[in-house]
């Protein structure tokens, strides 16, 4: 698992990367009540806002961690947004991407570095 400074986790699955938000992020957001997912097939660039998460407190975005194409989204999140709080690193993945550059993941934090970031 790799981690971004935006508190997303990235898990390699074959030639795809699965993206979700960390437990730390889910806890900070509070109870998630709405998730808006991108259309599969969308081409995104690093930093694009690809998902919207609304919690009881506020709205926030998930940014594309790398350049690539969204190939699959977790449609179950739209009906059960509370999964983001219950199982942020498991069932509540947001989308799967095909990377434009397979080496793009090299620069991200490993678990030890991420744990250091969130103190």
């Amino acid at each position: 698992m790799k981690y971004t400074e935006e508190h997303e986790w990235l898990r390699v699955e074959g030639d795809l990367v699965v993206v979700g938000i960390t437990e730390h992020a889910a806890e900070a957001l509070g109870d998630v009540v709405f998730v808006e997912l991108p259309e599969p097939g969308t081409t995104v660039a690093t930093g694009d806002e690809v998902c919207v998460i609304e919690s009881v407190k506020a709205a926030s975005d998930i940014l594309a961690p790398v350049d690539g194409e969204i190939v699959e989204v977790n449609a179950a999140l739209a009906d059960s947004p509370g999964m983001v709080n219950e199982d942020p690193t498991g069932k509540a993945w947001f989308f799967k991407m095909k990377l434009a550059n397979p080496k793009a993941l090299d620069g991200f934090m490993d678990e030890a570095a991420y744990k250091k970031l969130i103190g």
């Binding site: 509070g30 109870d31 009540v33 009881v56 407190k57 509370g82 709080n85």
Partner: peptide
């Protein structure tokens, strides 16, 4: 603003 139970609960 909230306790450990969380806003929703």
């Amino acid at each position: 603003v909230q306790y450990p139970m969380g806003v929703l609960k």
